[in-house]
Computed example of a mutant assay.
Amino acid sequence: MLRKALMILAIAGLAACDSTTGTGGGAPGFLAALSSPQNDAQRQARAAGAPMVWTALARGDVVVQGPRGYCVDPVTVEKRGNSGFAMIASCNILSDGATGPRVPALLVTVTVGPREDEATVPSAETIAALAGGTLQQSETRDGSVFVQLAGGGKALISDGEDRYWRAAFIRAEHLVSLAMYLPEGSHLAGSDGADFLETVVEAIKNASREKSDESSS
């Protein structure tokens, strides 16, 4: 918990950098260079508390990976059988500047629900109601729903943006829910947030497909 608190403070302190730093983009294919979720490098990273390029949840059905410059914080990873949780943030912040480019400061939580037959993505209105926020705008892209909420962003970063984005999509019959929390003044609190969150969704989908292909080969 101390690690998480320090990371949040670091993100708040980097708010000024956000307006001048590009978002980066694309889903990196680091998964191909790793043999499995249980390889030695991943185990050592978790033991040392170092940022992880990816982590497998829900018995490998969902592989959480961020866009370029963003890593998984191993301290936040929770594996609960066929569900799980992880948090994505700047590799540079998580490593105290040891690795990764400077990218906009943010936190993305990834929650993987249990596997369900005929799992469906909830509507934007349902996502807003469950989050207890006021729906400002929403989009559906390639089966994924992106929702901007007027309030609730300070739940994780007390002095951050109150506006924040959520997203939901289906992967291997699991509902995967994302929430993106931002420092105050971040341009990603506006319409650009959906574009960035889509890169996170695509990174997770691509990494999950690669892992699935490796397992079946």
Rank of each mutant, 00 (worst) to 15 (best):
R3T: 08
L6A: 10
L14C: 09
A16R: 10
D18L: 00
S19D: 13
S19A: 08
T21D: 01
T21P: 05
G22D: 11
G22V: 06
G29R: 14
G29C: 08
L31N: 11
A32I: 15
A33W: 12
A33G: 15
L34W: 13
S35Y: 12
S36K: 12
P37I: 14
Q44C: 03
Q44R: 13
A47I: 05
P51Q: 02
V53Y: 12
V53G: 10
T55N: 04
R59G: 04
G60R: 00
V62Q: 00
V63G: 00
V63S: 00
V63H: 00
V64A: 09
G66Q: 07
G66T: 05
P67V: 07
Y70R: 10
C71F: 09
C71T: 12
V72T: 08
V75T: 13
T76H: 03
V77R: 07
R80S: 10
G81P: 08
N82W: 09
S83A: 15
G84M: 08
M87K: 09
I88Y: 02
A89D: 01
S90T: 02
S90W: 01
S90M: 03
N92L: 10
S95G: 03
S95I: 02
G97F: 04
A98D: 12
P101C: 09
V103E: 06
V103W: 04
P104F: 06
T109A: 04
V110D: 04
T111E: 10
G113A: 06
P114C: 09
D117E: 15
D117R: 14
D117A: 14
A119V: 14
A119R: 10
V121T: 11
V121H: 04
V121W: 04
A124C: 07
E125G: 04
T126R: 12
I127A: 01
A129D: 08
A131T: 02
G132Q: 02
T134N: 12
S138N: 12
R141S: 08
R141F: 10
D142A: 14
S144K: 11
F146R: 01
Q148A: 11
Q148Y: 01
L149W: 03
L149K: 03
L149T: 03
L149H: 04
A150L: 12
A150T: 09
G151S: 14
G151V: 06
G152E: 07
K154S: 09
A155I: 09
L156N: 06
I157H: 07
I157N: 06
D159W: 15
E161D: 14
D162V: 15
R163W: 09
Y164N: 13
Y164S: 10
W165M: 13
W165I: 13
F169I: 09
I170Q: 10
R171M: 14
A172D: 13
V176K: 06
S177D: 14
A179T: 09
E184P: 01
H187F: 15
L188W: 03
A189G: 13
G190D: 08
G190M: 03
A194Q: 10
F196C: 02
L197I: 07
E198A: 13
V200Q: 02
V200E: 03
E202W: 06
K205M: 07
K205L: 10
K205H: 14
N206Q: 15
N206F: 13
A207C: 08
S208G: 10
K211S: 11
D213T: 14
E214V: 07
S216F: 02
S217K: 10
S217L: 05
